[in-house]
Design a protein around this nucleic acid. Sequence first.
RNA 1: GGCUCGGUGGCAGAGUGGUUAUGCAGCGGAUUGCAAAUCCGUGUACGUCGGUUCGAUUCCGGCCCGAGCCUCCA
Length: 462
Amino acid sequence: MLKIYNDLTREKETFVPLQEGKVTMYVCGMTVYDYCHLGHARVMVVFDLVYRYLKACGYEVNYIRNITDIDDKIIKRANENGEPFTELTRRFIEAMHEDSEALGILPPDAEPKATDHIGEILAMIGRLIERGHAYAAGNGDVYYDVRSFPGYGKLSGKSIDDLEAGARVEPGEVKRDPLDFALWKAAKPEEPAWDSPWGRGRPGWHIECSAMSTKALGDTFDIHGGGADLTFPHHENEIAQSEGATGHPFVRYWMHNGFVRINEEKMSKSLGNFFTVREILARYRPEEVRYFILTSQYRSPLNYGDEQLDNARGALTRFYTALRGLPEAVPLEANPYSERFLAAMDDDFNTPEALAAMFDLAREINRLRKGGEGAAAGLGAELRRLGGILGILREDPDAFLRGGDPAVDAGLSDAEIEQLITERLSARKDKQWAEADRIRHVLKKRGVILEDGAGETRWRRE
RNA sequence: GGCUCGGUGGCAGAGUGGUUAUGCAGCGGAUUGCAAAUCCGUGUACGUCGGUUCGAUUCCGGCCCGAGCCUCCA
């Protein structure tokens, strides 16, 4: 039975979807004005994992991940580049798709864009004004009246009074209350703008998610996710908007993933201490990056460092070594390791514990294969199946083990390596150990490790 | 200042009121022409001070330290 930590209640709760057998899920995606960094990668991997696991549990999942393609930063960057904002966003949407595909992220069922939902956004703002939750400020802006929504602060655990004590008030403020936030922003000259009953302008950031999620999934849906920094104010505001507009509960389970950290500090654009997915993929393989993200529970901080990525490489090598050479077989699903794996995943997606179960399974495979590779095949197939739920272990074992380090020059070609191995085999046959060792050392120097087995010699790159 | 969340063995990172996490690294053994891989064995780890308890790393409280949100941020 799946349990999910619900940020709304700060408790692990048994997951029961609104509609039996079906799950509706919305995740806040990217604002597309730059390349994805590791923090974005974590969101994508974490909720891809949730998506895959829910499907593995037999649910029919409708997974929506939005794209924010209009906001202040996009406008600013497009102006700096001297290009239309639509050209900027088109490019970075494409880049995001390349990155997510590289990381083995399944495409969501839909990826709505803010600019395609101006009509829905305007309709929702209209309803909020009708219901007394929003007001036009007179300068063309429309604001949400935070005091009009009694539940404001319930997700982030903040009270309006506490927030107000520390709120800063901008000069020339047209809001009634400093905490009120923009639903619609009047356009300045030269800015992208759409017509509205309040004059030309563009949507505020928070309203798009309320409008798009409600349109795609209904007034109430099951899971809403995103990075922990979105809890306040973004998700708090979404609740106020959606519940204020529809009068129905918005989201049943709120999930937030922890940050990627670097030297004990949050990785973020503003701190400038971020690595893009592209930079990391130049040095590590996609599966290693994905594994690294899975080594920590999704709500915990994830410390980035070469040591951690190297560790991921070593761990995957162990799995693929266990799988190497096993014949195809039907996964042997009934075994204590898989039970432990599923129990771990059911416990709020405890991937470190799930991986631990997989390592124990790998050990069992290694034990069994002493009695012949066939004996271990069923469990090997099962290990792959479990890996598939996490989105790892999809490659051919030999291909992975011979893949090497993307940052290191390929050195010898596969054919050259095979040639040297053939030469060495004949030397060994004649018990010319000195020659055999010479070839071993030559290959070792080029990053190739030989493993002499019964009747054949296997190789892999370090 | 307000509100959250953490502090686990060399590193990473789970978990539990009394019994082995797991991976990497280390050490000993088996195996191997030598290796590698693999298997077996191996570490008086739970920030600190009190409290509850027959017993606490695990529950409660104080303290110290760290991170995050309160402003755009995944």
